[in-house]
């Protein structure tokens, strides 16, 4: 029994050193050396390409909020805040607050609402109304939240249905926008892993360049 205890303590310390600190520090060293940009979070001037942002409160002179940019999925600070009377606070929305505006980093997370949930039906109906008011016939991605709560991507179809809204607010022709959407579409990795997607931040950077 005592010999078990002594060996357990020694092995626990060895593991703490090796599989805790040596592993994490060596891993961080190698990562920073080989893939600095990815290891730091794929940061660009306007944010991380891997973390979704709320686009629904973008000011569009003469048009309703958020109609002059492509919007991502309604994760948290997405269209939910607009359906609740332009309130940018995440309080009262389903799910956690992954990205607190002007605050500290919050938690990632999904709504966790079941498929029969009355609450989910209500939120989805609100979102359908939100999109219809902007002349958009929404796809399922645009009225459901993601697993992380900050999905940075939308599908090509999700971007195409937003073209009438963006064209009207920016004055850029639909055919140009369509060409932009197609050029920003990433196919499924290696042709079969996962699904095709568009990074919303990159899409809007491309849109800003068109303007």
């Amino acid at each position: 029994m005592l010999v078990h205890l002594r060996r357990s303590l020694i092995l626990a310390v060895i593991c703490l050193v090796f599989f805790g600190f040596v592993y994490a520090f060596a891993g961080t060293g190698v990562s920073q050396l080989l893939f600095k940009s990815q290891a730091d979070g794929s940061l660009t001037a306007n944010g991380s390409t891997l973390i979704g942002q709320p686009w629904n409160l973008t000011k569009c002179p003469g048009h309703s909020l958020g109609s002059c940019v492509f919007q991502g999925r309604p994760d948290d600070l997405g269209p939910y805040s607009d359906t609740e009377k332009n309130n940018p606070s995440p309080a009262g929305h389903p799910g956690d607050d992954p990205l607190v505006l002007n605050g500290v980093a919050g938690e990632s997370g999904a709504t966790n609402l079941g498929p029969k949930s009355a609450e989910l039906v209500k939120y989805t109906k609100d979102l359908v109304k939100y999109w219809h008011a902007r002349g958009v016939n929404p796809t399922p991605d645009l009225v459901t939240t993601s697993g992380s709560g900050y999905d940075p991507d939308i599908s090509q179809q999700d971007a195409l249905v937003q073209i009438p809204m963006v064209a009207k607010a920016t004055g850029i022709s639909s055919s140009k926008l369509r060409a932009l959407v197609v050029s920003e579409t990433h196919p499924a990795q290696w042709g079969f892993l996962g699904a095709q997607y568009i990074d919303v931040l990159q899409l809007n950077e491309g849109l800003a360049a068109l303007k």
């Binding site: 979070g41 942002q53 686009w55 973008t58 000011k59 505006l101 800003a208």
Partner: peptide
Amino acid sequence: LNNVSQTIA
């Protein structure tokens, strides 16, 4: 582009 500030973990 959207006047949003973020802090990421």
